Simulated scan of single mutants.
Amino acid sequence: MTSNDIVLGVLFMFQTAFGALGNSFLLGLYSITFFTGPRLRLIDFLLSHLAFANDLVLLSKGVPQTMAAFGFNNFLDDVGCKLVFYLHRVARGLSLCTTCLLSSFQAITLSSRSSRWANLKARDPKSIVSFSFLCWTFHLVAYYLTLLNVNGPNRTKNITERNFIYCSLKTDVPFNATLYIFTICLPDVLCVAIMIGTSGYMVFVLYRHHQSVMYIHRNNLTHTSSPETKATQTILLLVSMFVSFYSLNAILTLHIYLGKLTFWLVHISAFLAACFPACSPFVLIVNDSEVLKYSLTLWEKIKLLVT
């Protein structure tokens, strides 16, 4: 094991540990608050769902990648590889779908009461739960192909398999391009397009609102942003991060599958895939005032129980 391997292993270990810690904190906070604290916002349901999906992404990708970087390449058998790759693909799809729902939900929240989206506001709770259930069902079914193509580490020079360090992928399996496009590529592209469209709409609404109240800003030096504006800015930041990391990872993944496979590209692709799940909880903790309010409420309840 070289010094580069040790650096990679430590990097993946810290990324996974801190990301999992942040997501687990948010998930635990929202869960405890739901049962003992103030009433959660509807958006908090999506944020807790995102935290759970991000935890799955980090654990299913970060832990095996860390062990592989430290030189443990044969710690999974065929069943383990299938399960790890399947969980990662499903969790990654859920993270994408949930971020798309977050962006869409906030765009609807910002829309005018007199707009054609007004009817959707009344059905938000039922719609959000239904779409979340649909996301789970779709991704659990769509990624069954992963179970067929992934095997344990390739210990031979079999040219029909591509070695991804701790697992291998069959390349001689009959490939159905139409099925792949409609079950994998098209939904991902559609979600990214929706996020970009809703983000553009939110930026436009915020800019228009800023222009309409500019005279208030000039006369009120203590003006602060509304909670709705802060929530929108936080979601815009999350969407920007997701689209950036997702696009870079997609380009590298395409190159890995179509071009020459190198272990450095595999490591970089895995690191980029885990960047959003690792960073997003801290963006929410720092920027979402409701997280601080829930934390303070929980802390007060703990102090009352102790005393």
Rank of each mutant, 00 (worst) to 15 (best):
L304C: 13
T36Y: 14
S115T: 07
W136V: 05
A250M: 02
M1T: 08
T33R: 02
L206Y: 01
G37W: 09
A53S: 11
A51T: 05
M202P: 13
S132N: 05
L252P: 01
P277W: 05
V286S: 08
M241T: 01
N74Y: 09
R218T: 13
N176Y: 03
A250F: 02
N158T: 08
L21M: 11
K82H: 15
A193Q: 04
P277M: 09
T109C: 12
A177Y: 12
D44P: 10
S130M: 13
L96I: 14
F164R: 03
L254Q: 05
F45C: 06
V150Q: 05
V192W: 01
L42P: 09
F175N: 03
K260C: 04
S244P: 02
L96Y: 03
L29E: 01
S3L: 09
V79H: 12
V63S: 01
L134V: 00
L58K: 05
F131P: 01
Q211N: 08
L83R: 12
F282L: 05
Q106T: 08
K293Q: 15
M13V: 08
Y144F: 07
M202Q: 11
V283T: 10
A91T: 02
L236P: 04
C97N: 04
A250Y: 00
L42I: 00
S289L: 07
N4S: 14
Q211D: 09
V57N: 01
A273W: 08
S111N: 09
S247K: 04
I216P: 10
A250E: 00
T33K: 01
I108R: 00
C167F: 13
T262P: 08
P174L: 07
L190A: 08
F52M: 09
H223Q: 12
L148Y: 05
L46V: 06
T2M: 06
S225P: 08
L96A: 14
S289C: 13
N74V: 03
L42H: 15
S95D: 10
S95R: 00
A122V: 09
E161R: 15
L292S: 14
C97I: 00
I302L: 13
S60K: 04
A273R: 04
I194R: 05
T297F: 02
L11N: 12
L258P: 01
K126A: 13
C135V: 06
Y166D: 11
L56F: 15
S115H: 09
H223M: 06
Y215A: 15
C97R: 00
M67W: 13
T229E: 10
F35D: 06
G9W: 04
I128K: 00
I184L: 00
Y201W: 08
Y143S: 02
T156L: 03
A274C: 15
A274Q: 08
T224S: 13
K230F: 00
T99Y: 03
C191N: 02
T222H: 14
L120K: 04
V7W: 15
A193L: 14
G93L: 02
D55P: 01
I256C: 12
F271W: 13
S247P: 05
Y143H: 12
I285M: 15
F105T: 10
Y180M: 03
A278T: 07
L102Y: 04
A177L: 07
D44S: 05
F52C: 11
P281G: 07
N249G: 13
L134G: 01
T297P: 11
H223I: 10
A231G: 10
K121R: 14
E300M: 12
S103P: 06
G9S: 11
